[in-house]
């Protein structure tokens, strides 16, 4: 898996936050742990892409869902809705799960 996409995923998916958003401006450590585990799991999975051109748009979608999770209240309905969306997205391109 491309390091470039993984680093973008890590940065945009969890590290960059919105200092001016009521929810995203502060993240308790329990939430940070939860999100870190999700991102590490995404990094550890194997993906089945038919071409290089598919990788960028796919990870853009993943990053977008992670961002929406960051904007939602932790473990709220919106948060779990986005998490389900993420699982669906991951299932689409995943062929095998490795630790």
């Amino acid at each position: 898996m491309g390091w470039r996409f993984l680093s973008k995923l890590i940065f945009w998916g969890i590290l960059q936050q919105d200092a001016f958003d009521k929810v995203d401006c502060a993240s308790p450590i329990e939430r940070q742990e939860y999100m870190l585990n999700i991102v590490i799991d995404i990094c550890d999975k194997e993906y089945n892409f038919s071409g290089f051109a598919e990788v960028g748009p796919y990870f853009k979608k993943v990053i977008n869902v992670l961002k929406q999770m960051n904007y939602a209240l932790f473990k709220s309905d919106d948060f779990f809705k986005e998490e389900k969306e993420l699982e669906k997205l991951l299932a689409e391109s995943q062929v095998a799960v490795e630790a």
Binding site: G2, W3, L6, S7, K8, I10, F11, L36, I40
Partner: peptide, 13 residues
Amino acid sequence: RLKTMLQRGLEVS
């Protein structure tokens, strides 16, 4: 690990 991945991403870019 996260830091290593970020660093590798930067090098690749």
